[in-house]
Simulated scan of single mutants.
Amino acid sequence: MNDGVNDGVSDGMTVDEERTGTPLSELTTMRVGGVPERLIAPADTAALVSAAREVWQSGEEWLLLGGGSNTVASDEGFDGTVIRVVTRGVERLDAPEGRVRLRVQAGEPWDDVVALTVRNGWSGVEALSGIPGSTGAAPVQNIGAYGQELESALLGVEFLDAGTGEVRRLSRAELELGYRTSVLKRGMLGVVLSVDLELADNSVPGGVGAPLSAPVAYAQLADSLGVALGARVPVAELRRAVLALRASKGMVLDPDDPDSVSAGSFFTNPIVSESFARSLPANAPRWPVTPPEPNVVIGLPPGGVHPLDIPPLADGPYDVKLSAAWLIENAGIRRGFALPGSGAAISSKHTLAIVNRGHASAADVAQLASFIQARVQSEFGVLLRPEPILVGLVL
């Protein structure tokens, strides 16, 4: 079977250095950001390792940039070296029967990887279709959508540690993945060089029947597919449904859709204590982060041998996740909202996205984001946290 996997370098930009004077607005999906002092794009992994070590040894400021989908950079540019990761290649590794293992170079566009897996009937990341950016950035914030997170398919990463200059492998456990976070996002500095994935091989010998997806785990996606939660559908059908849902929210990059000129969801869904969540309006959506595991009390009737049916005891306080979109909308900020004279606005399709209407500056984006934060905090006492990496900007 020609699965489209190779152990070489895929087609794509693999130059040793970017042209002088390239602004970050040309390399980020938000399309804001000035010219950095220096911008390099090493062509392969060996060159990337060498270049990164050289930059770190110099002591100068540095910024790592992949697909630019999760970065909002200052209009002033960056006073240091931007290391752009463009390394390409997908290699198939040995795997247990019924499983597929891939090693993906960090510069591979993430959605290209998902498309490859779907074409081959492999499931495990199909609900992550349409997410922009590079594969190396995916584990940094444990990307997730429509009931699926990268964590479920991730084996580990090859990592160049900025502290030691050494290349090492970090397992899924060592990455300490959580909701839109990892140890890499919380301060472990370095460069993800490659990402190892393990997927289910649902391809059918002889080509009879369609390979099936992982169980559908998100209500909106299930409704779109016309199936019950937990059902499995052809993996290509699930990808099409996810792409359609994302496009309806302006979350698929499209030159003809001004609502797609964004950094995706600008704020993460806040996680608060269950007791705090009770202070919010009853119709505020909330989901347990980890369903509390109650302590079960087992008792025996006098002289009996069968346990009594005693209800479990609650384990105590637990955390819940709130809907940032609901908080924004119910703080009085509607889709399409913009501050007077600003080039930035709330998407007309999706409240969580801040979009560039064609002439926004980074300052416009930051001003609108700060305004949203202030309104939500004033109304509900919740401080929304930005999801993109902010370069030279403070909210």
Rank of each mutant, 00 (worst) to 15 (best):
A137V: 11
A138L: 12
P139L: 07
P139Q: 14
N142P: 07
I143E: 00
Y146V: 02
G147K: 04
Q148K: 11
L150S: 06
L150D: 02
L150W: 02
L154C: 05
V157K: 10
V157M: 06
E158T: 11
E158S: 10
F159D: 03
F159W: 08
F159Y: 12
D161I: 05
A162M: 05
A162K: 06
G163Q: 15
G163Y: 09
T164V: 02
T164D: 00
E166F: 05
V167R: 15
V167H: 08
V167L: 08
V167I: 13
V167D: 06
R168T: 09
R169W: 04
L170S: 02
R172Y: 05
R172C: 00
A173W: 03
A173H: 12
A173D: 11
E174S: 03
E176F: 04
L177Y: 09
G178K: 15
G178Y: 15
Y179L: 05
S182M: 06
V183W: 07
V183T: 14
L184F: 13
G187Y: 14
L189V: 04
V191S: 00
V191C: 04
V191I: 15
V192W: 03
L193Y: 00
S194D: 09
S194R: 14
E198V: 10
A200N: 14
A200G: 05
A200S: 14
D201F: 15
D201T: 15
D201Q: 08
D201V: 06
N202G: 12
S203A: 15
S203K: 10
P205L: 14
P205C: 11
G206P: 03
G206K: 11
A210S: 13
P211K: 15
P211F: 06
P211G: 12
P211D: 12
L212N: 11
L212K: 15
L212E: 14
S213L: 06
A214Q: 15
P215K: 10
V216Y: 02
V216C: 05
A217G: 13
Y218R: 01
A219C: 07
Q220K: 13
S224N: 07
S224W: 11
L225T: 06
L225N: 01
L225S: 03
V227Q: 11
L229K: 10
G230S: 08
A231L: 11
A231T: 11
A231C: 05
A231P: 01
V233Q: 03
P234C: 02
P234S: 11
P234N: 09
V235I: 06
V235Y: 02
A236E: 09
A236I: 10
E237D: 12
E237S: 11
R239Q: 07
R240Q: 07
A241D: 00
A241I: 13
A241W: 04
V242K: 05
L243R: 13
L243E: 10
A244S: 11
L245F: 05
L245A: 02
L245Y: 01
L245N: 01
S248W: 07
G250R: 02
G250I: 08
V252F: 09
